[in-house]
Design a protein around this nucleic acid. Structure first.
Lengths: 151, 151
DNA sequence: TAATATCGGACAATTTTGCTCGTACTTTAC
DNA sequence: GTAAAGTACGAGCAAAATTGTCCGATATTA
């Protein structure tokens, strides 16, 4: 539970990598995927979503790639997660449309409070900028990387 | 991502149900599972874990069941989640033993910062007590219930 | 026009989660 | 003491999400 997806990890690493380059440098998906050893097709999707959300600028054609649309100290974790994984939802019951409402239970004692928890989670991620994740520790003892947990 | 498991939802609802009863009332797994329409075998596991962690007292034999070991305003979400799902881990890289260290990546720019995010998450859940989830809203408009999200 | 990119959908593999079944073991009631 | 009601626990299956792959289309530059 509450584990970050690999896709989000890829995205954060890519943002950090772009930030290490001079401003407005355009970097291809392949370069990033080779540097970190990520599957390039998956990273490609992640970068697409980030650019769709306006966090990256895409440059098509030969010599193209992606560049930062904003400095990463102005990009919150909330934005990254929602760009890559969609809206942060702790529970489906909180969805707008309500198509998947569960009528199989007698009591609903926790819907609104759970939503409050969700909001506090989002607030927390709002306050954390990507640079706080990527810039702090460039000299890491072990060669290790973000991946999902196994409960 | 970041979705609560149904098991945690079951646990929180069960804790709330027990709290509605007079103090030290013993309630069987079957009663709770029938009230909420949960699969009793799964709920049984959840309650076992909660009692193993000291959040519930188990009463074996005929007429047995579970009772609250503590008032639910003294039980944090962290305790519930860790009892039911194990330690809160955003990433496997942060594990103690380090058996699953990933040596497939060149750079590790985010390990320690990610751990800080994890700690802030745990702190957040430390401050939220179960009663804040269960007691607030007994008059819920729709019959709905906590379940996991679908990204 | 050829090479190199981003796009985007469809799909298989893998992992996690949710759930079921079966079999112990404990205690209470009779 | 025996049976019933309950917890304790583990193996195993099904569903769902995540991850990774493949393929074609489009855009841009050399």
């Amino acid at each position: 539970m509450l584990a970050l997806t690999k896709a989000s990890g890829y995205g954060i690493l890519a943002l950090g990598y772009l930030d290490d380059k001079p401003e407005d440098t355009v970097v291809s998906t392949r370069e990033i995927s080779e540097v970190f050893g990520m599957p390039s097709e998956l990273l490609a999707k992640v970068l697409q979503r980030l650019s769709k959300r306006g966090l990256l600028k895409s440059h098509q054609g030969r010599g193209g790639g992606y560049s930062l649309a904003r400095p990463i100290n102005a990009i919150s974790l909330t934005e990254v997660f929602e760009a890559i994984e969609g809206p942060i939802e702790i529970s489906v019951c909180l969805k707008e449309g309500g198509e998947e409402h569960c009528d199989m239970f007698e009591y609903c004692t926790i819907k609104a409070p759970i939503e409050q928890v969700q909001n506090r989670l989002i607030e927390l991620f709002n306050t954390i900028m990507v640079d706080q994740i990527t810039l702090d520790l460039l000299e890491c003892p072990e060669k290790t990387y973000l991946s999902t947990s196994r409960a």
